[in-house]
Each structure stands twice: as structure tokens, then as C-alpha cells.
């Protein structure tokens, strides 16, 4: 008995000659936040659509809650599923509240749930205005409200923060955190890597329809063995002893650009470099440790 709410096995999607998704295996554990990263055209949205049963796979198998994503049984799964499509589009002639009420009816959620949800995403002041006059950010908020209808157990969010201002992005992740604490499983895609790396439990990096890497942010960093570097501020005349001390532990990559002195080393050497620097009593006046960001991991894998 696994604890996986989503299981993707050897899934392939071909559009004519184009291999949009090429043999993806994936599992997402219940209650986790899972991030999917990749360039445009990497196959993220296609994979999403297959997981939602919107696009049939060419081959392979996807199960959500243990059920295949087609056929009559999947309707029940859909009742507990929230989806925010990339570039969400609504009906211009309806107001925000009417839009939400329409989707609430389809999901079998009472109309009384709509007002508080609009409040939650910060749209209650615009509830009775037509969606036609909404900004991109407001549409995105309405899209999120729609995805949250009926307290879904599983949330699919495709580029959820596009169009949101920094305040909106913060609010979005606050809501996401609340959903997670209520036990929801969340799967999201993003281009803004620095934004999601602190907020996902696991992530997958996609390139050309394939999963290039899969794991926690930490495990990806470690398997990549990306070098890290120290940025130093030195006292007068400290450079020669610094070079000597570092050469003694086999670190010789020292770059000097004007005032900035940086020391590059492998991850395993991190602590010994720190000790060597500490031993240079008083010569190093300040120090920053720079770790590779997920962005570096991402570019390293799929750049």
C-alpha cells in the first residue's frame, strides 16, 4: 500500500512527429507540495493535462487516488480536484461572483461558499464587477478561488503566480500553506525557480518531454555536486597567506575582481575551507557563503 496520490508510469504523448512527453515516471505523495520545472515546451502543461484526463496519453498509465484518469470513476476524483490552468480564461460577460457560482454548481458546492472564497483571494470588492474589466492578477486570483472550490484534496496549479504582484505572490503562498496544512496535495509548475525552491517538498525538472532530475532541492544540489564559493573581505596584505593556507588543503581557485575576492571549492571541502579561513586570525574581515540556487541546478541539468 503506497501513500502516493498520483502515480505516473511510462507516460508518452506524441502529437504527430512531436514527442511532447517521452516516458515520464512520477509519483507524488499525499500531503506534499510537488514542483514541476522546465522551459516552455518542456512538456509540463501536457503532462498536467494528461494527469487531469483532459488529453489522452499515447501510451503509459496514470492513476490518481488509485483510479485511471478516464472513464466514469474519474468523475468522483474530479469532485475533489482543483485545477488552475496556465493563462486561465473566464467568461467576460459574467461577474467574478457569477463565474465562481457557475463552477461551484458544476462541482456541487453550495453558493454560500463563493463569497468567503472571493474574500480569501482578496477579490470581494470586485465580486460584482464583470470579469471583462479584471486585470491579469485579478483573473489569476479568481482562478485560484475557482481551484479552491469544495476544499480539494488535490490541487493542480499551472504557473499559478503569473500576473501576480509581489504582495499577491506572498498571499498565494500563504493560501497554499493553509491548504497543505489542511492535508491537500499540491502540484505546481513555475518558471520563477527562486520563488518555489523554498516552498516545495520535492521537485522534478523536465526537458524535452523527459524528467531530467527528481528529488528534494537538497538532494538535487548534492547529486549535482555543484561547487560553492566564499566571498571574502580581506585585511591589508592578507592575500599571500590566504593562498598558502588554501593551497595546503588543495583549494586553488581564487578569483579576484577588484575588491571582490571569491574562493571556489567543492561541496566536500566546505568545512575544511572554513577552518582554514578561521585559522587566518584577523586577516579575513568578512565572509559570505554562496550556495548554488535551484536556478543553477536547473540550468546545470537542462541548460
Amino acid at each position: 500500500m503506497t501513500n502516493n496520490v498520483i502515480e505516473v508510469r511510462q507516460i508518452v504523448k506524441r502529437y504527430g512527429e512531436v514527442q511532447a512527453v517521452d516516458g515520464v515516471d512520477l509519483a507524488v505523495e499525499t500531503g506534499k507540495v510537488f514542483g514541476l520545472i522546465g522551459h516552455n515546451g518542456a512538456g509540463k502543461s501536457t503532462l498536467f493535462k494528461m494527469m487531469l484526463g483532459l488529453v489522452p496519453a499515447t501510451s503509459g498509465e496514470i492513476r490518481i487516488d488509485g483510479r485511471p484518469v478516464s472513464g466514469a470513476g474519474f468523475r468522483e476524483v474530479r469532485r475533489h480536484l482543483g485545477y488552475l490552468p496556465e493563462n486561465v480564461v473566464f467568461y467576460d460577460n459574467l461577474s467574478g461572483l457569477e463565474t465562481l457560482a457557475f463552477f461551484a454548481r458544476l462541482k456541487g458546492v453550495g453558493r454560500f461558499a463563493c463569497g468567503p472564497l472571493l474574500d480569501r483571494v482578496g477579490l470581494s470588492a470586485a465580486a460584482d464587477r464583470r470579469v471583462k474589466g479584471y486585470s491579469k492578477g485579478m483573473r489569476q486570483r479568481l482562478g485560484l478561488a475557482q481551484a479552491l472550490l469544495g476544499k480539494p484534496k488535490l490541487l493542480f496549479l499551472d504557473e499559478p503566480t503569473t500576473g501576480l504582484d509581489p504582495e499577491g505572490i506572498r498571499e498565494f503562498y500563504r493560501i497554499l500553506k493553509e491548504m497543505k496544512s489542511e492535508g491537500a496535495t499540491i502540484i505546481l509548475t513555475s518558471h520563477i525557480l527562486s520563488e518555489i525552491q523554498e516552498r516545495v517538498d520535492r521537485l522534478a525538472i523536465m526537458k524535452n518531454g523527459k524528467i531530467q532530475a527528481l528529488g528534494t532541492v537538497q538532494s538535487l544540489r548534492e547529486t549535482m555536486a555543484l561547487p560553492l564559493w566564499f566571498e571574502l573581505r580581506l585585511a591589508e596584505g592578507a592575500e599571500p597567506p590566504l593562498r598558502r593556507a588554501l593551497a595546503a588543503i588543495g583549494v586553488d581557485e581564487i578569483r579576484i575582481e577588484g575588491e571582490r575576492i571569491s574562493v571556489h571549492c567543492q561541496r566536500e571541502a566546505k568545512m575544511s575551507v572554513l577552518q582554514a579561513l578561521a585559522a587566518l586570525d584577523g586577516l579575513v574581515t568578512d565572509l559570505y557563503v554562496r550556495e548554488p540556487s535551484l536556478e543553477d541546478v536547473f540550468l546545470g541539468y537542462s541548460g
Binding site: L54, R78, Y83, V89, F103, K107
Partner: peptide, 13 residues
């Protein structure tokens, strides 16, 4: 318009 996917992600055949 791009609203079909959202509609079909509902419990709607």
C-alpha cells in the same frame, strides 16, 4: 478562448 480545459476538469463529461 482557452476555457475548455477548465470546464472539462470539472466533474462533467
Amino acid at each position: 478562448r482557452g476555457s475548455l480545459d477548465l470546464l472539462l476538469s470539472m466533474p462533467l463529461t
